[in-house]
Amino acid sequence: MEDIRKRAKQLLEAKTVDVVIGYGEGYGKKVKAIFVRKPEDADKLIYDERCTQNIGVYLTKHEVKHFGKAAIVASVPVMRTILQLCSENQLKEDDVLTLGITLEGKFLEFPTYRTLENFLANGVQPLTESDKELMAKIDAMSISERWNFWTAELSKCIKCYACRSSCPMCYCNRCMVDYNQPQWVSVPSTEIGNIEWHLMRAMHLAGRCVNCGECGRACPVDLPIHLLTFKASEEAKINFSAVAGLSMAMPSTLSTYKPNDKENFIK
């Protein structure tokens, strides 16, 4: 933690960066994302096990971009976010300085995206045990059981779009559900409208999801919706050997064709 503060202070003093995006104390023992712009505020930065939010979501935010060059305190999912955003032309190469936190909790600075790629080649954050367990449970279900499981879960969705807002890959400035000419997806929170939204979201993230699980954590009614995108990324890996967020120039999985692509999903 001291390393991060020291380095953030240096960077801000030297005006290498204009803002350090990191975590700070919030109200009632909770943490929140903070945006440090003055060297003297660097001491507000913290990093501990409560810092689970994928703050990569702020990298594409208008107000944050406005500050200028950014450094970000980055856990492994945030690192993947940076590379994936770069692949998708939302960040320019080496636009963001990564103050990385390894899986072991060590501070490691990444001066370039190339160094990030090298680091991530050694492995990424595994799924949590509870996610693995639930995923295995869902995998073991028959198709009708699975359908019942998800329709029951998704019927609770209130369509607050916290999943969308918290996802760093949902950076569209107008989401297709917000179109009404034509209306692609039913607007209100109805059973079918909820299913449409979540399936579409999973499809749009297939091959792009960096497995941070933020959508599931953000959900105010505790739906395990992150498993939908996890599953889609698993399929992308199996079928197209594509893993998002490991390279700053990954060709988009679903919009590129390779002659040796498996076609066994077409039935």
């Binding site: 998708e88 032309n89 939302q90 950076y171 569209c172 400035n173 107008r174 060709p251 988009s252 679903l254 919009s255 590129t256 064709y257």
Partner: peptide, 14 residues
Amino acid sequence: AFSTCVGCFMCQPV
């Protein structure tokens, strides 16, 4: 906004 396009350019390879 200028366009609802966010410039991800995933359309380019297709």
